[in-house]
Design a protein around this nucleic acid. Sequence first.
DNA 1: AATGAATGAGGATTCATTCAT
DNA 2: GATGAATGAATCCTCATTCAT
Lengths: 195, 195, 195, 195
Amino acid sequence: MPKLGMEPIRRSALIKATIAEIGHVGTLEVTVSRIAKRAGMSSALAHHYFGSKEAMFLAAMRHVLTLYGAEVRGALAAADSPEGRARAVIRASFSASSFRREVISAWLNFYVLAQTQPQARRLLSVYQRRIVSNLCHALRPQLGARAGEAAQTIAAMIDGAYLHAVLGLEAPDGAEMAQRVESYLDLTLKIGAPA
Amino acid sequence: MPKLGMEPIRRSALIKATIAEIGHVGTLEVTVSRIAKRAGMSSALAHHYFGSKEAMFLAAMRHVLTLYGAEVRGALAAADSPEGRARAVIRASFSASSFRREVISAWLNFYVLAQTQPQARRLLSVYQRRIVSNLCHALRPQLGARAGEAAQTIAAMIDGAYLHAVLGLEAPDGAEMAQRVESYLDLTLKIGAPA
Amino acid sequence: MPKLGMEPIRRSALIKATIAEIGHVGTLEVTVSRIAKRAGMSSALAHHYFGSKEAMFLAAMRHVLTLYGAEVRGALAAADSPEGRARAVIRASFSASSFRREVISAWLNFYVLAQTQPQARRLLSVYQRRIVSNLCHALRPQLGARAGEAAQTIAAMIDGAYLHAVLGLEAPDGAEMAQRVESYLDLTLKIGAPA
Amino acid sequence: MPKLGMEPIRRSALIKATIAEIGHVGTLEVTVSRIAKRAGMSSALAHHYFGSKEAMFLAAMRHVLTLYGAEVRGALAAADSPEGRARAVIRASFSASSFRREVISAWLNFYVLAQTQPQARRLLSVYQRRIVSNLCHALRPQLGARAGEAAQTIAAMIDGAYLHAVLGLEAPDGAEMAQRVESYLDLTLKIGAPA
DNA sequence: AATGAATGAGGATTCATTCAT
DNA sequence: GATGAATGAATCCTCATTCAT
């Protein structure tokens, strides 16, 4: 039953299947056939829509990053103070939709990809910088010149939590992780505040 | 003229070549042939000594972890105070021999492997715990009950720094990273101390 | 608004595109999609009109042969003596419209096809024979019984020139080739004439 | 039974199988698997020894050209006069070992390949030039300045005969073809000599 | 008439692994 | 101990062709 306008539907299904499959296998050593099967179509069709496995990976990356970006943006919009904005970024990073085994595995593998795929590196760098920038602005009012380093540190802690989560046997606990990072934030603000 | 005692030499050469190749390619998608060639022997011989590609990966992991462990142990031995021990762990983590592009790439890929390879997971977990434990003990005198969380945080920051380094274009700067983590330590101790 | 009478237009466009594509790629390893795209339509439509790739090739062959046949016929009509008719065939074979890289490549590939495709072989044989027959008749008055062999020789020289042209780096020079063949004709006639 | 020194044996078997398969299929659209099977080995081994299908084609070309070159050289060595040398080249071109359906098909396809494969083009050009050069030298004593054109013509006739043979239904008759070309030679010499 | 959708079949190439020497 | 030889299994990708609209 070939209808018109299948493209966006197929692409979307493939992107989701790609992430799921990477999460399932834990590696980028995933076959186009399996992804396609998971998405309910032939591998030929997957190639028809994306042209190559690599392109599918990049599309999947963009998807993950976009979702994460949306999560952050949403949380930022709901915040009502600079400090609240910093906390919003942290919590968004550990939200239930992002801090899941499957997505974590995808992130990890995107870092692997970023080592050799220039576009992947660029995508990841851009997001990385955006997060740091958000944090930096949020912390500036209270920390002034020290905001930059604190932002970097928080970003590193978030990444570290993701990496750490890979080793955990149970489902990763986003709340706890967010709590940990916020503790650091508390500490930093307490010291930085005196001014 | 088959020389005696070739085995340890061959194994060692293969392990180093494995790490180098992973670092070079950036992935576990590395071929036994390339590794063997890098180590100056045939792929058949590599199989003879390790039995399988997977076994080579595990051996390479053990090697990296052992080196890192030795570095930490050495630094700890030279420390003369609990706080000094904490700083020793941090500095060892960013030492020139560990915080290099190649080794960082290997670490990253070992995390990938750990997702599906039980032994790899165990190895990484053990080391992870050992580091946290070291930090915990070192911080206990000054932080008491809060030592655990601080240790976890520091460990996460170290991991995060590794992950971050993957995206950097220049050679990773261990000194700067160590400095950053130590800043957190300073902060924590300053607050925690008064108790 | 499906236009009426589209069929001949489409078919013609596809045939031209087929020749162009074969000329471009240099091979029969040409895809229906590319041909269709070159002709400004979908590959499905190409199949609709020709049924198969093979049928398109045959149609393209017929087209090339027909054009060539027309060229020869035209030249023959303008000739005013048997000898002139022989020269007409030769010149038509190297006319600017036939002796072009693209068409030469098509010819070459049609020979390849003729090895296995009975219809292709038949088409090519028929044309081959027609040329020889034309030459034979044209030479008979002066060469008598030797006309047959001379005709065969000239036909072979023409084919050989086509094959030769494949290796040339510059655009093939039809005039020069025609000249070469005519030199042979001169020679033959000079000797054959005395009778 | 893996022995040492298999390489030359395998390569040779593959080269022969490549030519045979091209002759059989009539096209370069031949699969490595079938060639390998014909040569009694796996396709993987074929790739091991040649690296790629293209490389196999080139090796097969070199083989055919080398055989032909040897044939020509042998015939030249046995000739005892310039004119005899010219006849030697012609006869060698139509010798039973070269002027066989299978080899003719290979030649034809090499011309196809030469259109796009620079190395193939070079190989073919070199041989082409060598033949013309041989003929030219052989004819110079009797034809002087006209030797060049005659040589070109003979070369074209030889190529044309090959192309023509593709269409024949019976086994190609080398003797007849050689005869035909030699007739031209006779003619040319008769006219050229008086000078 | 025209096309996007869809796929089965196939093909080049790679690779871990085994084996005989 | 050491290696060239050898392959089966897999994987990405392409393409002619069909089909429903």
